[in-house]
Design a protein around this nucleic acid. Sequence first.
RNA 1: GCCGACGUAGCUCAAUCGGCAGAGCAACCGCUUUGUAAGUGGUAGGUUAUGGGUUCAAUUCCCAUCGUCGGCUCCA
Length: 596
Amino acid sequence: MLEERQENYAESYLYRVRHSAAHVMAQAVLEIFPDGKFAIGPPIEDGFYYDFDLPRPLTPEDLEVIEKRMREIIAGDFEFEKKVLEAKEAKQIFADQPYKLELIEGLEEGGFDEYGEPLAEKPEISIYTHDQFVDLCRGPHVDNTGSINPDAIKLMNVAGAYWRGDENRPMLQRIYGTAWESADDLEQYLWKLEEAKKRDHRNLGKELDLFSVNEDVGPGLILWHPKGGMVRKLAEDYCMEVHEKGGYDFVYSPHIGKAHLWETSGHLDWYQENMYSPLDIEGQEYYLKPMNCPFHVQIYKSKIRSYRDLPLRFAEWGTVYRYERSGVLHGLLRVRGFTQDDAHLFCRPDQMPDEIDRVLDFSLSILRAFGFRDFQAYLATRNPEKAAGSPEQWEAPTEALRNALDRAGIAYQVDEGEATFYGPKIDLKVRDALSREWQLTTIQFDFTLPERFDLAFVGEDGQEHRPYMIHRALLGSMERFMGVLIEHFAGAFPVWLAPTQAVLIPIADRHFEYAGEVAEKLRDSGLRVEVDTRGERMNAKIRDAQNQKIPYMLVVGDREVEDEAVSVRLRSEENLGAMPLESFIDRAKADIRERL
RNA sequence: GCCGACGUAGCUCAAUCGGCAGAGCAACCGCUUUGUAAGUGGUAGGUUAUGGGUUCAAUUCCCAUCGUCGGCUCCA
């Protein structure tokens, strides 16, 4: 599905518009900085960029000047002319452009296009010219610069980017721009960005008092406040309940473990750069756990396992700590300490396909319960360059993963050779309300740990056999998942997850007593209720409850006291009017049951 | 980590050329007793992120550190 979309995009008119806009921008930039060097400038989702090596950092004012000049070039209606030439000729044209020369050399050798992407066959070398500007480019472009709509382009921002994405190469300045066919499209896109900003979980986290990060605690470490803590608890309660029903056993493990454990598991070999420095305890080195697997493996190993015991499913909401470079931290989505809804499945080879089916279905049903409908899966297969075990060992699990995906009937793509060395995996992404993709679930085979820890079960034949081990996290991490939930619902959690489900709004002081009684009754029937006893007017209380995205606002005044009723207003602004308390309770319970 | 921008009251933001640090909201104390998105008056709130430097004088200029944001790279 996604792949198709991308293929279509590359052939679309809009793609050519954006590609052309990138060239126009490069011309404008190089007119301002005649000695500037330019690198690559492809269309991307929603726009384009171009990388430059310039004598000074660009400012927002520069962008305005560049954008203005772009409109002049567009108005000039210059033709885009393509010319195919020999590498030698191309090198002469770009003699003082080192990045272009490097690209030409790459093209000459074949194997890579001008964006550094691998190619099947050796490409031709071509240039595109418009006005006075020449760029190495395979196209395609629009016919004339005039085909770009000057009212539908906008330069967005400047950011650093390494040449060829390699941190050992020079840091270039990347200008991001967006381009559309019509001014309306541009406006709509900018609106969507605004909308995304309003939903930003970092802002909502503050406004709804869900969580914070504190400078003194440390970057990438989350403090859950009571409201956010409640949402998280509710999410965890639900998941734990279905895990128990789904045949999982709950285990708990410590936050630290001896160096020897991590040596055995191999983490100190291949994961150490993501691990924090060891603690010294009585002369022994202990590491904060970056993963839960070794502990679960040790629980497996705590006694002799029979084939009759399998499958074993050990689940733990396990908090792990991973070193992330300071620049990549991002709200709840990328943190240094987080809690995985982790589990490890140990099974016999004959049970493996069924286990895979089960866990994939399980994941989908949980994600659906949280309101996600649109899924995209990625099957990562063996990378011959770095893979534990033999190709034959990989076959059955890879097939099982593929079959499970076919049976589940969800869109998936195969990422050939993208697996980690220790086994094939499925990653599951969900699409949110703004149709952005978020990776949540991961289901990974592990060929290495059963070997390293010498895991075994006694078979029917009385002999020792090696179990399969599958690592899986469904929501991924609670922190990241909460961030995704906040953005998906724009903070308006479904009733079953809302930290406060109803707020009672007494109109005057004399209604406080009745409001308190109603609140007690609602709490008795399991609802999470607050009473707003501030000396504010009803209008102000409604406004605040609305901003807090509380599902039900229950106004009580003289009439309601008289009738033993509540007047129900929904956060959708719908006013349901007065109803008997029992009717409201029924309504709320139905909404909760339906997960609305 | 790297490139760039930024850091002022709990929050959102002002402060002209270097010249007494301010507003709205929130909080607190009053008045108001309210019928579906902000009633009203007052009070309090600051080592301008931290440390150093330049200057008669620094929120403002310089340096370092910490942190935040947009990207690169990586990823649950």
